[in-house]
Design a protein around this nucleic acid. Structure first.
Lengths: 190, 190, 190, 190
DNA sequence: AATGAATGAGAATTCATTCAT
DNA sequence: AATGAATGAATTCTCATTCAT
């Protein structure tokens, strides 16, 4: 069966889900092939290997976050509180739609420092996220000197919440992280 | 040569370090053997397999934390603030001595839900930690209704800090998590 | 785009070079495609497979040698000494222009007896060469009884020289073989 | 079935035969395993890969030739003519016992310049052989200035003969090469 | 005729596990 | 208890070949 069964983008999207569920090392090319309706060998038409495929997944995820989520910070039509709400709603949506926590976190823990080629993208993700938070917090009127620390604290808190949510298979831990951030910065509950 | 070269305990201790550095799937029995001065085959005299060895590692780590660290909460001779300080100092000590973050977190992210046999110990770890925090916060006079949330938030924050510390290879992220906790509960800096 | 990009002949010529440089098994259809400015799939419009392509290459090479080189023996206008000189000059020219030794020899050693379908052409090549030598040696006045042995010895000597030239990446070994033949049959040096 | 089934040396010896018959690229680790009564995976206990195994084969063959054959040149108890006879008898014996020509030649043609790690051993083989011939020819009273050329010519002639013998599956070609050498240097026939 | 995605059979290699010594 | 050779299943990757467009 020749002619395009599936595009590069689709492979990346499918691979993302498999990697998220099973981790990098435990996922086989065959698993990913199956998720795409392809044989493992066919994946090599599109990606030169497992490592490059994962890199594409991480890049793609970064682009998605930057274009669809973190750019909210630059939107001049929204109030900062709405931006924060949007940011959290979106991340809730993503995490709960796709299940199984944050790829960047799990791959980061599983493969740093063993797979340095992944680190750049993973670091870029967290940096973009923190910068987005910084912008919002600045707009909310927080003093410039504290904004970076507050942003990174929020990132850590959410990622910690995701970790616990995954380990306990219980979303409450993530919800609580979000609640804390609301309370801290918007003075009202979820 | 039926002479005992190494005990079960030693293998567990060595395996812990290797698993921490390389993750569960990327670590081979041969790696662990090497770290113990044994050949991989010899490990099977002590453990029935890789999975059981990892379980022993997790159990052992739990026991260590419970006996040496989390039990601080029950010590009647210490002020609650000192308990909190001790808890944080110890975790700093462990993480910075052994490098490479928190085994429970990385194995948790890498193997949940793929390897359910690890989950019990990993959950037990975080639960003990949170309970320890709860006790301390209660003693510090925080209202009973909020103590659990505050405890879990702290755990999440520290774990998030550890994640970032590992991903960026920069301890500052962990230090900041600890600073935040000090500030929040002791109203003084590190 | 059903436009003819390249003819069968061109593919054969390009394939020859690639097979010579890389050997039969180590050469992929993709390598040959690349050398032709085609994708590997397109080669199957012209040849039913890798084996048939190699057969075409061997046939083509044989035809080239027979038409352009070995037919010199039948040329009534040349003195036998000039024929020998021509034969050697040509083979020097071919081997040093195209580099990487004699296709017939390398493919012969690599694929006999594994790929019997190649043997006929390879044998034909050496037989034609020896016959050409025989004619020349006969014309040079050597006794009929010894002419065959002398011809085959020369072939062996040149092929041995080519082998050493390839293994040591040093053309001297081939030059020496030619010098020996000159000395033996023409009593003068190169 | 644990405990030594086969030694490293035996694997090398078996691998030699398989590589000789099938060439380097066409031989699979599975083929070699089969020839040894092992599974392919077991070969990796003894050799880190196919390339290393082939290197061991080439080294081993070199050592064999140097210790058992080429050292004849240094034997003070033999007349030079006997040395030459011994050298040729031995090579006849080896080639006709093991069939399928000269490993060094076929691997040399198949893998130069693609596998430079083999070249050193292959070159060493031909160099040792030529040196052995040089010694013998010197002892036979040939002028120093010509001895090297004569030696290399003989090597080339024999290798060319082997090539033809393999391509035509006919030992005569090799016998003839030997005859020529006898005639040239001993003035008597085989 | 050319493309290029897909196939599927196998290639090399890895690794948890077994077991005779 | 330790060894280390052997296993065999699994894994990554390759490549000749097919075929719809």
């Amino acid at each position: 069966m020749p002619t395009q069964k599936i595009g590069k983008e689709d492979i990346v999207r499918n691979a993302l889900l498999v990697f998220k569920e099973q981790g990098y090392h435990h996922t086989t090319m065959s698993d990913i092939g199956k998720a795409c309706g392809l044989l493992k060998g066919s994946l090599y038409h599109h990606f030169s290997g497992k490592e490059q495929l994962m890199e594409a997944v991480l890049e793609n995820l970064n682009q998605y976050y930057e274009k669809k989520i973190f750019q909210i910070a630059d939107n001049p039509d929204l109030a900062p509180a709405d931006k924060l709400r949007y940011l959290i709603e979106k991340s809730v949506e993503i995490f709960f739609t796709q299940r199984v926590g944050c790829l960047m976190a799990s791959i980061g823990l599983e493969t740093t420092p063993i797979r340095p080629s992944f680190s750049a993208e993973i670091q870029r993700f967290f940096t973009s996220w923190a910068q987005c938070m910084e912008c919002i917090l600045t707009e909310l009127g927080h003093p410039h000197a504290q904004v970076a620390t507050m942003a990174w604290q929020s990132v850590a808190e959410v990622e910690g919440g995701l970790l616990l949510a995954q380990v306990f298979q219980d979303d409450t831990y993530l919800h609580n992280a979000h609640k804390n951030i609301y309370n801290r910065f918007l003075n009202n509950s979820l």
